[in-house]
Amino acid sequence: MMSLREIKYFLAIAQEGNITTAAQQLHMAQPPLSRQMKNLEENLGAKLFERGHRKIQLTEAGCVLRNRAEQLLKLMDTTVKEIREIESGAHGTLSIGTASSSGVTILPKVARIFRSHYPDLKFELWEGESIRIIELLNAGLIEIGLVRFSFDADTYESIQIPKEPLVAAIHKNNPDFLNEKQDVIPLRKLIDQPLMIHRKYEALITEHCQQAGFNPYLLCKSDDIMPILAWADADVGIAIVPKAAIGLIPSTNLVFKTLSDPCIDVASAVIWMRNRHLSAAARHFLTLFTTINKDPLLLDLP
């Protein structure tokens, strides 16, 4: 076995072609350096140098060792650089889980800014409903999750994302809304309308409808936003979804109306495990998210 020190000593002699000069470069005396090289030759069972009066020449075995030694040192330097880049957050892969609607709104904008600072970083995205994101986080498959419901604050740390309103996705041929030109409609306009909702919003929507003086007609409850948007596109009923869901499906049939009197706002958050080590990349990403949360206008900068 060769030590890293022996490799460096050997390369110094090979580059200088003179053991005295190599010893000076290495800041050591010549006799110890000569002994190191003699021991190296004995351990390898091969002669590495042809010692002349003025200049040391490498044997064939010495030339092979020089090529390999240079490659080894280069590989070591590259490895150290990569490790430092990973620790600095400039290299590696960041795994993020996101609820469907969040994944197509705020996350891409944050990722664009983040990538401008860390262009060599890669992403791995996992998409699903909030329950699925929690499962992935608990399993350690992702470091950061974007979720849309309450979570255990003792288990997860979080950054709250500004609330967004629920909107009604209405087919353009719905006779009750053909003449509705406003982008905002009162909640009472949904009396007796067949509503399709995400199951997690049932209590919230029911409570606000009752505040407006009626019980909602819940035609369909789903664990995913995409199917109820597709059903609304087919004119089965009206889908009630977060505003961020606008554009999730390509459609020329749907118009979206923000609900008011009362407005129904939903909360979301970026979460991560409280007592789990985060990579440097994840820490940098959360720092950026915090900055943007304080100044949302950053998302609109070129």
Rank of each mutant, 00 (worst) to 15 (best):
K8Q: 12
K55L: 06
Q210F: 05
A111S: 10
N39P: 00
M37H: 02
S3W: 00
S268C: 06
W231G: 04
K47I: 10
K109L: 15
N18E: 14
R148E: 14
I197M: 01
L136K: 13
S268P: 07
I205K: 01
N173F: 13
D261E: 12
T258H: 03
D261V: 02
E42G: 04
R115Q: 00
L44A: 10
E202D: 05
M37Y: 01
I134Q: 05
G17V: 15
N138R: 14
I191S: 00
L298I: 13
C209I: 05
R115S: 00
K163S: 15
V64T: 10
L301P: 01
A239R: 02
K55G: 03
L33E: 11
L73H: 10
N253V: 03
Q211E: 13
T291Q: 13
L229D: 03
L297F: 04
I225S: 06
T93H: 08
R54H: 12
V104L: 12
G213Y: 12
A99D: 08
I142R: 05
M273H: 09
I292R: 08
I292H: 09
A168Q: 09
Q211V: 14
T258N: 04
I170W: 10
D192Y: 00
L166A: 01
F10R: 08
V147G: 07
F256E: 05
L178M: 04
E180V: 06
G92D: 14
T291V: 08
E207I: 02
M2L: 13
N173D: 15
T78K: 13
R51Y: 09
K221P: 03
G62I: 05
T59Y: 03
P216N: 08
L26R: 13
R68Y: 03
P119T: 01
R283Y: 08
R276C: 05
C220M: 14
K122L: 11
R66E: 15
A282T: 09
L94V: 13
V270P: 04
G145M: 03
Q211A: 14
Q211M: 15
N174R: 07
T155K: 14
K163Y: 07
E124M: 11
L278C: 07
K172C: 13
M76E: 15
V270Q: 07
E41V: 11
R66G: 04
A281M: 09
E143M: 01
S279D: 08
G247K: 11
S116E: 06
A14I: 12
K122T: 08
G17D: 14
L4Q: 05
L73V: 13
D265H: 07
A203S: 07
D154V: 01
N253E: 09
R199F: 06
A280K: 06
A153Y: 09
E87L: 12
V64R: 07
P31R: 11
S251Q: 09
T287Q: 12
G247L: 11
L125K: 02
S102L: 14
L75D: 15
K294V: 00
H171N: 15
E157R: 11
E202T: 10
P302W: 02
E85V: 04
M1N: 02
I13E: 13
E207L: 11
L297E: 10
E60S: 07
K122I: 01
Q71P: 00
A139T: 09
